[in-house]
Design a binder for these strands. Structure first.
Lengths: 191, 191
DNA sequence: ATGGAACTGGGACAAATGTCCTTTTTTCAA
DNA sequence: TTGAAAAAAGGACATTTGTCCCAGTTCCAT
């Protein structure tokens, strides 16, 4: 549920130790909007610590959460490749520490550093790989099944992530989430 | 709705002209299963002509269509990066012409050819970029709105793609699709 | 500590969608 | 060309989920 990328986190740490200068450290309090949908930015973030949500919101203000991002996850990188505006907003859930690198340095690194290049491709590939079955499952199974599944992969999700965000992640309303949770509590010792 | 990648198609054509030997041409009739979910393959396909569907099926046999693939789209490439089994099945809808390259030659090309590397990264990035708003929209809006949207981006979709596949693409049942189409026909001159 | 804002929980009803089934139409191979 | 199989259309009903509320609770900034 909260995606991480340890390999990339480790490698970037190595890079920073070797050549600190092109990376900057940033800190955000909880609930801060870091990237706003349909805007332009000139840097890529990598999460060192904390949890963020990446979401699309529509004209009616509905949010649909794409991913919860944890340690080692990048965001703002897609715009390096196509130079378009962002498709998602990113907002910290907990306090968040990131390191950032400019688009141009990121591109240089991609060209010059084969290991980095491979890790970035792998990270993109994982984003595709994880999203596919998730949406498929969410559509094809009732809400309760989805909650049980989340509970299995991340037992503390209910206390860590606000209810509204959980609902927006599954793609349902808060009301439906509550109904399902109530029934699960009645049925199962898990909840 | 049917994704294409002209730039990649063109570039691969150039590569084939320059060094034919590492690419093979393949042809499949309509409705052929080319890649089966949870299996291993050792080559990457790129579509030269025709339409295919990429889908996940669950234990109950429900299919959820991830993408319709047209000219210039790759499939089977994710498995080069992580060496895992496939997450999707790919099946031709029309007769399909592809060119294929072995995993090892694909990897060599990624390392040696910066242009190819960039185009592949861009292709991955696009897969992410297109998938996000689509799922968001599908979840957040009624079926009719989704159909109108498809009609706008690809007016002939109803005659080209089987109803069952359209339903599986939107993530609804055939029954619901028919209901919605009937109402749209009554309401709008478009359908 | 306290008052307002935001989160949480749930009742009552409406609407959308799914399930199950039957009928009609189209497709395609013998 | 024709008969079996697949695809499409739709009736009747059940179920799920959403919408619109309101009430209780928690969380902060003053």
């Amino acid at each position: 549920m909260i995606r991480v990328n340890e390999e990339l986190a480790d490698y970037v740490s190595t890079l920073i130790n070797a050549r600190n200068s092109i990376w900057s450290k940033e800190t955000y309090p909880a609930k801060t909007l870091i990237i706003k949908q349909d805007s332009r930015y000139s840097k890529v973030h990598l999460i060192r610590d904390g949890i963020a949500k990446c979401y699309i919101s529509d004209e009616n203000g509905k949010e649909f959460i794409q991913e919860f991002l944890g340690q080692g996850m990048e965001f703002g990188e897609l715009e390096v490749f196509d130079r378009l505006t962002t498709i998602c907003s990113v907002e910290s859930i907990t306090a968040l520490h990131t390191v950032t690198i400019s688009h141009s340095n990121y591109q240089k690194l991609l060209d010059a550093d084969k290991t980095f290049n491979k890790l970035v491709i792998k990270a993109l590939s994982d984003k595709i790989r994880f999203k596919a079955p998730r949406h498929s499952y969410q559509h094809g199974y009732p809400i309760e099944a989805n909650l049980i599944r989340l509970k299995e992969t991340f037992p503390e999700f209910i206390s860590v992530i606000p209810k509204k965000d959980i609902a927006n992640y599954i793609g349902i309303t808060g009301r439906s989430l509550n109904r399902a949770l109530k029934e699960l509590k009645a049925k199962s010792a898990l909840f």
